[in-house]
Amino acid sequence: MMKTQSPLLSRRTMLRLGAVSVSMLMIPRIAAATEDEMNEAINAMFGDRVITEGRVNVDLPPIAENGFSVPIDIFIDSPMTEDDYVKQIVVFSPRNPLPVLAQYHLTPMSGRADVSARIRLGGTQSIRVIAEMNDGTLWSGAKQTLVTLAACVID
C-alpha cells in the first residue's frame, strides 16, 4: 500500500492553515497607530525640541510570545544628582492603538535611572523611549521586538 503524503501540504499543515485563517477573520480590526501618529504624539509632548539618540538603553525580549505582557527595562546613563538627573521617561509605540504607553517621573532621590515594567504590544514593532533630563535636553533609544501573539486585537 502506497502512502500518499505531499511533503509540502500535509493534512496537519492544511488544518493549521485553516485554523489560522478562521481566527484571523474572527478578530475585529481596530486602527493601529502608525509611525506618523507616534511622531505626532512625540511632537505634541516635546514640540520641535531636538531629540538626540543615545544615553537611553531599552531592553525588550527579541521575541515576545505574549503581546499582552512584555517585560521592558529602561536604563538611562545619568549620574542622578541634584544638578544632573532624568526628569521623565516616556515609552512610545508606532503600532499600538495609542502611541503613548507609559510615563515615568524620576527625581534625584531615585539614585539610578532604571525602570522595569510590563507593557502590551499590538504587534511586531520598534519601541521608542525618550528621556527628558532636568536641563531640558531630550535623549532617545529604541528596541525592536517580534510579537507572536499581539495584544489589543489589532493585526
Binding site: V91, V100, Y104, H105, T107, A117, I119, R120
Partner: peptide
Amino acid sequence: VFSSDFHPGVAA
C-alpha cells in the same frame, strides 16, 4: 521620589 502615568498600553 518616583511616579508613573499608566496608559492602556500597560499590562494587567
